[in-house]
Design a protein around this nucleic acid. Structure first.
Lengths: 238, 238
DNA sequence: GCTGCAGCGTGACGGCCATCACAGCCAAGG
DNA sequence: CCTTGGCTGTGATGGCCGTCACGCTGCAGC
């Protein structure tokens, strides 16, 4: 059996560094074995699509490596990015547990390896292992949490500058080192950032040069340094 | 023991018509008994607050009657309403299962009765009854789903008119009778609608009179009739 | 009755930003 | 080398809508 897109199956993605993360860490051994029996690993190239908005849920994908863009789009082609998923996250979870169609589209933006579990297998597994169901609930809660956070940046801002500031501050909150100056790598195009904060590509470009002019941030290639976090914060709810 | 706000405890809210809804329907008898042992009922008047954004989660509220507004707000007082909860829904679920602070504020807008379950009790209950944990996961998935839906109306619209049209169409999708003409009661002020779709109160007023002029809708008191659903749909992504 | 208050309707104005258009720039690849 | 295509920078323009301001209605309560 071949994985999609003609790539070989990755034999043991279960050995990837994030296996113990989040969803299924610390489960009792029988549960882990049950899990191993129903997962199948695959690799996906850049540009591949794991699932599409509106599809009936086939199952969940546990992301082992690479990065995946979760977005929704309207009839006229405009699209809104809700989240960039990192290794360790589980994709398609809400749709798979509820049985409703996927609400988002998942596109691979950095070559990825993922474990797939089909919906029937997954539901059986949850029924048999109550502890796992609880973990799933927690993961869903966190997913919800981050969705709310994005709603806040989009819905509560008065200006595009404020949206971008909120976006950058939230990024830095995740990758924070606690220092006054935060360095982070941002492998997103202006276009993608625009789609995350609900603005146009040109506006993002303009805002960035604005921030650079005001010494708030500094960009070198895909590295972004937040020089003046307080300055960014002062832009909120101005 | 007295409930908050000086109102008497409602003795058996478990007999309310929505007990069997959603979260805990069809659970085996021992689970239902376990649940009954840890719930405490209370009534809340209009204007009461069940929990506040940022608070550590005390537990969940199962709404038996009345309606509750879930919102988040920014430093400058601007606020964004995410959802109006109806009887049968469970409030505070994501925060309670994850242990993170409530991400929203819950205000009573129509006198409500609710069952409260404290976080420790609730978590124990879930650990002991795996089936219940699965139901919780499903409920969370649906909550997430509706959050995404609201993100779409706010984030993917080009104009305020489009946002309002999306909002009305989604309302009608829930209360739909399948006919060409949908009647629904809308007990929200223009201000509240504005906060739901991310617009100003005046704009909502103007859009409504616009829609009335175009014979798309018709308003009488708190009753709203969608006369021309297709017309509303033609406003999307225009 | 009157007063107060919450919600609705409407006009005027001004700023923000989406859009269009085009010009550099870099990397990949023939 | 030149071409192509994706990404970034920047100007000009125009419209949408947030904001301020004020008047209106209807309802609750003394």
């Amino acid at each position: 059996m071949r994985a999609p897109y003609g790539l070989d199956i990755i034999e043991s993605c279960l050995s990837c560094p994030h296996r113990e993360d989040r969803l299924f860490c610390n489960l009792p051994p029988p549960a882990v074995q049950g899990l191993a029996a129903i997962t199948s690993a695959a690799a996906y190239p850049k540009g591949a699509t794991l699932f599409v908005e509106g599809q009936l849920p086939r199952g969940v994908f546990i992301l082992c490596s690479g990065r995946v863009k979760l977005s929704t789009s309207s009839a006229d082609g405009k699209s809104l990015i809700l989240r960039i998923s990192e290794p360790g996250e589980v994709l398609g979870l809400p749709a798979t547990v509820t049985g409703k169609p996927y609400e988002l589209t998942a596109d691979v933006i950095e070559p990825a390896q993922a474990n797939f579990i089909s919906r029937p297998d997954f539901l059986n597994f949850l029924r048999e292992h109550g502890e796992a169901a609880l973990r799933v609930a927690q993961q869903l809660g966190e997913t919800y949490h981050s969705a709310i956070a994005e709603m806040r940046t989009i819905g509560l801002s008065h200006s595009a500058g404020e949206k971008l500031a909120r976006f950058l501050l939230e990024l830095s909150a995740n990758h924070d080192k606690g220092k006054g100056e935060v360095k982070l790598t941002l492998t997103l195009t202006h276009e993608e950032i625009a789609q995350m904060i609900g603005a146009s590509r040109e506006t993002v470009t303009r805002m960035f040069s604005d921030f650079k002019k005001k010494q708030l941030v500094q960009v070198k290639g895909s590295t972004l340094i937040i020089k003046d976090k307080a300055g960014l914060e002062s832009l909120l709810s101005s």
